[in-house]
């Protein structure tokens, strides 16, 4: 099947000038050669720690920033080279939901104005009354009533504001949404409400979703596939269950072991990272994770490992950027083995 989004060797570098008269130039390689395909109707979780480039990748896919190089094939067409005007028809097809809805909603605009504004640009054929009706319907879809229309963002709780942020993204009937940490600022019980809302709109509207977050449990709940980023590169990408039960990259193993679980009883063994995070201006040669990896070999410094099919029968859609296939990494969840017919010895 042809993916809705196919990004090929995508790079987003930010040059930094320093030295005498700013002549030496270095670059922060926020996204450095990412290949990622997203199928129609799929939810892909993008996890990583701060500085991994996950938000930049999301913004670049949205063409909020022009990539340094590489392509973003959106529904068969490379949109990375398009002009502002050329992008216009695509803007309607993809939308973004941000972490803090308070800073992405205009505090002086009523909810109604915030919701109908995108339609003025993207659907100028609609009358004011039609725009209002659309807005009311969308509000209802996200669990708010029309009585919210005349109110301002500050009158709502964090969870309600995030619903408004989602409603605004839905106004232009997009097919693809990038949600950047949309539940990170919310309390647990509210976080669950918003996650359920994402699941339900994804179902009813058939949305394709890139869910960017640092929270592995959230990704485990919402995503069909998970990509793990470190220093601008994808370390591992796998169907969600497989990532939790059979991680193939040491960084994934470390992340999974570090995430605290709400369970009493003996603590899981923690896989510690060595050393300190490298400078993004001067990432390690070869594998970027090798300076922190417990399994690094001299070869790891030689060449940057490309994403390749994960070893040991992990399935065709499981990829890792680790050279080693002799590792037995600790899973976050052990699958209770299904009864099997024993093969006679």
């Amino acid at each position: 099947m042809k993916p809705l989004i196919d990004c090929i060797d995508l790079k987003q570098h930010y040059p930094i000038r320093h030295g005498l008269l700013g002549r030496q130039s270095l670059a922060v390689k926020a996204v450095d050669g990412v290949n990622l395909q997203i199928q129609r109707g799929e939810v892909v979780g993008l996890v990583g720690e701060s500085g991994s480039g996950k938000s930049t990748l999301g913004r670049t896919l949205m063409m909020m920033e022009k990539p340094t190089s590489g392509s973003v094939i959106y529904d068969g067409k490379d949109i990375a080279g398009l002009t502002h005007a050329g992008l216009h028809p695509y803007r309607r097809r993809m939308q973004m939901v941000f972490q803090d809805p308070f800073s992405s909603l205009n505090p002086r605009m009523t909810v109604e104005d915030s919701l109908t504004m995108p339609l003025r640009f993207h659907a100028p054929e609609l009358s004011a009354a039609q725009r209002r009706d659309e807005a009311a319907e969308t509000l209802e879809r996200v669990g708010l009533s029309r009585s919210a229309f005349e109110r301002f963002p500050h009158e709502f709780s964090g969870g309600q504001r995030q619903r408004i942020g989602i409603a605004r993204a839905l106004m232009v009937k997009p097919e693809f949404i990038v949600a950047d940490e949309p539940v990170s600022a919310l309390d647990v019980s509210v976080q669950a409400q918003v996650l359920n809302l994402f699941s339900s709109i994804r179902q009813t509207l058939g949305l394709t979703l890139l869910f960017v977050t640092h929270d592995l449990a959230v990704v485990g709940h919402i995503a069909d596939r998970v990509a793990v980023m470190y220093l601008g590169q994808i370390m591992e990408i796998a169907p969600t269950r497989a990532l939790f039960t059979a991680p193939a990259h040491p960084y994934t193993e470390t992340l999974l072991s570090a995430a605290p679980q709400p369970k009493a009883g003996p603590r899981r063994a923690r896989i510690a990272m060595r050393g300190e995070p490298p400078s993004p201006l001067n990432p390690p040669s070869g594998c970027v994770f090798r300076t922190r990896c417990a399994h690094a070999l001299p070869e790891c410094a030689q060449e940057r490992p490309a994403l390749r099919p994960a070893p040991a029968g992990r399935g065709a859609s499981h990829f890792t950027a680790c050279l080693r296939d002799d590792l037995s990494l600790t899973p976050a969840v052990t699958e209770t083995p299904s009864p099997r017919i024993r093969t006679p010895v």
């Binding site: 709780s157 647990v188 976080q191 669950a192 359920n196 709940h221 269950r241 995430a259 976050a332």
Partner: peptide
């Protein structure tokens, strides 16, 4: 118990266990 039910669990990762538990309304 409502708070605990609203926390996504690693055990359920990648398995559709239906919606998370929620507590309606707010503090």
């Amino acid at each position: 118990s409502g708070l605990l039910a609203s926390v996504p669990r690693f055990e359920d990762a990648g398995q559709s266990k239906g919606p998370l538990g929620t507590i309606e309304g707010f503090v």
